[in-house]
Simulated scan of single mutants.
Amino acid sequence: MPLERIALISDVHGNLTALEAVLADIEARGIRRIFNLGDYVGKGPRGQAVVDRCQEVCEVTILGNWDDFLPAPDIAPDSDSMRWWRNELREDQWAWLRSRPFCHDFVLSGRQIRLFHASSDTVHHRTHFDHDEKQFLAMFENTPATGDGPLPTVVGYGDIHDAFCETDLGRTLFNVGSVGNSLGDPTPVYTILEGVPDASDPAPFSIQFVRVPYDAEAELAVAHALNAPELEGYEAELLHGIYRGDIYNNRTPSYHRAG
């Protein structure tokens, strides 16, 4: 059977300019299948437009932590920023975001693959790239959140805005990076999986990371025009890849606190 490519995107966070640049690159490569690992909203100014666009182009749409708490005032942090990002969305989008599935399992080139946003147990538990062996193995476990399907040998996730790939103990763990809020290197990044779909026998398989330059200044201009919140932090993230929490809390810059 012929090889097929699947584009994995995550953590757009209301950055429509970055999303459109990445979608253009995906289309130019002739890739027709797009899976989204969550966090469509928050941080950036155009969550509503991002949700609409992702509903249009994404075959798979997974729940992220922002998608879970932002539309729910009873669990979201109470702040002017949270209210602004929530009210920028339509009410029908609140329900759609919270109804996204926790994970997506499929087979590619004889490998059992599982995709989720942050960890195997909850969208609110973060697993950084500098994890220990126990944390690594936990990403491959079945939990009440994932259900009792076949155990994965390949796991992909988002949340930390920090693309990486690690193979150990016969398993592969990778992070797809962030389209709209990439930290460390602020250039949007997405992942391409290539293999034979639904093939139970081993076949060629690859994981590729793609960085796509875009006009960050244009996105910031929109944010200013809309009077979006936390503009100082948004500028630090989009232009310099510095996490906004480090700016507001006077911490040494670190890109390992995203979400």
Rank of each mutant, 00 (worst) to 15 (best):
15 N>T: 06
3 L>V: 10
126 R>V: 02
111 R>K: 07
98 R>Q: 08
91 E>D: 15
3 L>E: 12
203 A>Y: 00
77 P>R: 03
93 Q>I: 13
154 V>R: 00
118 A>N: 02
259 G>E: 06
153 T>K: 03
56 E>M: 11
127 T>L: 13
11 D>K: 07
12 V>M: 04
175 N>E: 02
243 Y>G: 07
148 D>V: 09
36 N>V: 05
96 W>F: 14
71 P>E: 05
184 G>W: 10
145 A>C: 04
99 S>K: 10
195 G>C: 06
14 G>K: 09
64 G>W: 01
206 S>E: 04
97 L>P: 06
26 I>D: 04
176 V>W: 09
231 L>I: 15
187 T>Y: 09
218 A>M: 06
144 P>M: 13
186 P>V: 13
80 D>K: 15
163 A>H: 11
169 L>N: 15
188 P>Q: 01
61 T>C: 15
96 W>K: 05
185 D>P: 11
185 D>T: 15
186 P>Y: 13
198 D>P: 05
158 G>T: 02
49 A>Q: 10
183 L>S: 05
225 A>C: 11
4 E>G: 00
242 I>F: 06
43 K>S: 12
130 D>L: 14
211 R>V: 10
125 H>L: 02
215 D>H: 15
49 A>K: 09
129 F>D: 15
57 V>G: 03
23 L>G: 03
112 Q>S: 12
129 F>H: 12
90 R>V: 13
247 I>R: 05
99 S>A: 15
244 R>M: 12
234 Y>Q: 11
85 W>S: 00
56 E>W: 05
116 F>G: 03
39 D>C: 00
110 G>P: 03
123 V>G: 10
199 A>T: 06
77 P>G: 04
236 A>H: 13
179 V>M: 02
171 R>E: 02
56 E>R: 12
6 I>G: 00
42 G>P: 13
26 I>Y: 09
194 E>N: 04
259 G>Q: 08
202 P>G: 03
169 L>I: 00
4 E>Q: 06
69 F>H: 10
161 H>C: 00
20 E>V: 01
126 R>E: 06
196 V>K: 07
200 S>P: 10
132 D>A: 06
148 D>E: 14
23 L>F: 10
69 F>R: 02
254 S>D: 15
164 F>E: 04
210 V>M: 05
82 M>F: 11
184 G>K: 08
219 E>R: 07
18 A>D: 09
43 K>Q: 10
74 D>P: 07
152 P>R: 00
91 E>M: 13
36 N>A: 09
43 K>T: 12
215 D>Q: 12
38 G>K: 09
222 V>F: 01
100 R>L: 09
199 A>G: 06
47 G>A: 07
223 A>K: 02
9 I>P: 02
57 V>Y: 02
219 E>Y: 05
239 L>I: 15
